[in-house]
Nucleic acid binder design. Structure first.
Length: 420
DNA sequence: TCTGGGGTCCTAGGACCC
DNA sequence: TCTGGGGTCCTAGGACCC
């Protein structure tokens, strides 16, 4: 059996842990730049605030404090996630941290355990240890555990947050209840396509012929179908090293001229190189992309990207910037309202096991130079910049509702008042 | 006025090899 | 009339996830 444990409204719940006055009130967490809603408490969901709702749509509710809004505080969420995962990892030696707020736990050899009670124990341990509410779905396969988790959450008053699918009848019932759009692995495109042929529930999907699923949805779809039918197909996945790493941002206002766009892209590639060095990796190639504003329908649509293979694997800001700018020149077009750009490092490898080039090699000074730069920037909050960056740093990200880094900064630690 | 960021996997097709 | 067979590697694009 597999358990899927998922933190309820994770980011919103993190904010509440440190501000319990928000319990029972609508809370939303906003994306970078405070652009749109990316997490909602149940009360916010009841106000019909959808995932991805632009912040300006609900600005009145925020201003009047009907809804409590927070800018994303990833330092806080990442660390709270680590605490939750640490506690849950004690429940079985086999687990897979699937995302910041989800973990699959394989329950092999738990035949004589009461799984419902085991799930309830997970909830009480995590609640006591972190204050984060969780839901537990338990079933014979990963895809069914996902379904069970949805049921546990949806009918929390009946389930107490745990749902176990351990019989054919419960499986049938669960699959009939699950709408096709809500199936893990079926996104907007596939859902549309499936509905056209009359598939509206997960159960309908499991009745499709293998050949059709294979043809229309590749082996990924077929594996999903099997797993959802109760035939264990998807197993825990090993934590692999990341293959790519990206720094991409939307701009607060559209950009049209090359100089401004260049400045943004140089800043992104600088951040990317820092990120690489921080984890002792280097990259073999770079991808640069620029987008027009998709919301301005009356303007010309333009999406373009270019991939550049580097002569040798590197994490030098200087080398990466040179190639990034070459790439940017290739795809830059005049007269476009640009809204977003990004740089992606591809073919990541650890510093010490990278492929060395035969003819060209990085100037040896770079490693020493950047170790000093990183050291100084860590101490002085990014005082050293590169010539291509904007020295006045007018590009502050908007984050008007940022909470404190309660768990990772000593001077932001929570204060407790005792009333005797 | 204002709409996020960072990932993964699979497939088809082109370029190349012997 | 009729023009091989079997492979690898790479990339772009499309799907998905949180």
């Amino acid at each position: 059996m597999f358990a899927l444990v998922d933190c309820n409204n994770f980011y919103a719940s993190c904010e509440r842990v440190f501000n319990p006055a928000l319990n029972g009130k609508p809370v939303v967490v906003l994306s970078n730049n405070d652009g749109c809603v990316i997490a909602r408490s149940n009360e916010a969901k009841q106000l019909n605030i959808k995932m991805g709702t632009p912040t300006f749509v609900i600005k009145d509710m925020i201003a009047s404090k009907r809804v409590h809004a927070f800018s994303s505080n990833y330092a806080l969420y990442g660390e709270m996630s680590a605490r939750v995962m640490e506690i849950l990892s004690r429940f079985s030696p086999d687990y897979e941290v699937y995302s910041i707020d989800e973990i699959f736990i394989k329950l092999e050899g738990f035949t004589y355990h009461n799984l419902r009670e085991y799930g309830a124990k997970m909830i009480s341990k995590v609640t006591k240890g972190t204050g984060i509410p969780i839901s537990v779905g338990i079933a014979p396969t990963k895809a069914l555990a996902k379904v069970a988790n949805k049921i546990a959450k949806k009918f929390i008053h009946k389930t107490g947050g745990v749902h176990v699918i351990d019989s054919e009848e419960l499986m049938e019932k669960a699959l009939l209840w699950t709408q096709i759009d809500d199936v893990w692995g079926i996104g907007r495109r596939y859902a549309e396509k499936l509905k056209k042929i009359g598939v509206t529930t997960a159960r309908d999907f499991t009745q499709l012929p293998d050949a059709y699923v294979l043809k229309e949805m590749t082996v990924v779809g077929l594996r999903l179908k099997r797993d959802l039918s109760g035939k264990p197909t998807l197993d825990l996945e090993e934590m692999a090293d990341r293959k790519n790493m990206a720094v991409t941002r939307s701009f607060k206002n559209d950009i049209t001229d090359y100089a401004a766009l260049r400045e943004r892209v140089v800043t992104y590639v600088t951040k990317l190189a820092e990120k690489l060095r921080k984890q002792n990796s280097c990259c073999q190639s770079l991808q640069i992309f620029i987008h027009s504003n998709p919301h301005k329908k009356e303007h010309r649509k333009y999406y373009n990207s270019v991939t550049i293979n580097l002569p040798y694997a590197t994490n030098s800001t200087i080398v990466m910037t040179q190639y990034t700018l070459k790439g940017l020149q290739k795809i830059f077009l005049k007269g476009i309202l640009y809204k977003k750009a990004g740089v992606i490092a591809l073919g990541l490898a650890p510093n010490d096991s990278r492929q060395l080039a035969i003819f060209k090699e990085e100037t040896a000074e770079h490693a020493a130079l950047f170790s000093s730069v990183d050291h100084l920037n860590k101490k002085n909050h990014g005082k050293i910049k590169f010539a291509g960056q904007d020295l006045n740093s007018t590009w502050k990200m908007r984050c008007e509702h940022l909470s404190k880094r309660y768990t990772t900064r000593l001077h932001e630690i929570i204060t407790i008042r005792c009333n005797h």
